[in-house]
Amino acid sequence: MSSRDDDAALTAASADAAVSAEPDPVEVVPLRHWGRWVAAAILVVLVAGIVFGLSRAQINYGNVPGFFSESVMLTGLVHTLELAIACQALGIVLGTILATMRVSANPVASWTAWAYIWIFRGVPVLLQLLLWYNLALVVKTIAIPGLFSFPTNEVMSPFVAALLGLGLNESAYMAEIVRAGFNSVDKGQIEAAYAIGMTPRKTLRRVILPQAMRVIIPPTGNDFINMLKETSLASVIAYLELVQAATNIYSRNLQVIEALLAAAAWYMILVTLASIGQHYIEQAFSPDRRTTGPGVLSRIQTSLRPSLNRSV
């Protein structure tokens, strides 16, 4: 190293230095995720505390299964499902029509849809339910002259009022979801469809909708899960759904929390089933993006375990 004249010696010396500064490693030590362990411990303690606290509460858990399967609860369950499905169906059909109107070249159609969405998104859905239910106060008959005529208070049953309140409100949100779906489809796809001689209608059905579905389904599933729970609002207009059923039970025996927990269990089951259904529908509409990822447990394991996929 000292001699600058002797190139050979210099090269040999630096090679020696390299050897001493960069020894052969004997073991690879993966990074330990201490932070993750600490966070996990805190959470486990917190959850255990809540569970313990609830177990000490004066809840008569033994009564819950009975309420869960009582006939009025099962009637409420069926009504909840009927209402949620009917409202979502109405929302999807009307929402698709509104979305088509919104993107239409006809300005009157576009403005009408815009105003509809503006109104129905602007008013709380509970208030909408009450408006429909009490419509008979101000509108005595519902009629199209020459076609039909009904007294409003006969037509506007709790179910119909709930259907209109929740369904029309939902259609305003579905309209925006469907419109976002339409907009997500590349314009080139539409031109390609036109170029092979498809009409606009066929293009919508064969090219735009199937691709828009990928964008439409996740938020629609979300909305349906919300809808399953929003039907509980219909209890205020005396529709016998799950919450109304729980109210019936506890007004009889004063087991308030127990009856509500039984209803809550049904909601959890419905929502879980809906989520699973949503997953499969999403898969069906994404034939080119199907993936199978690792399960939850194995993801927790890999995240906590120190691991390095290499050797020395």
Binding site: G188, A193, Q211, R214, S286, D288
Partner: peptide, 13 residues
């Protein structure tokens, strides 16, 4: 009339 586009525009699904 057939048309071929710069960006292919194959139906993605």
């Amino acid at each position: 009339v057939g048309m071929v586009f710069q960006r292919f525009n194959l139906f993605a699904n």
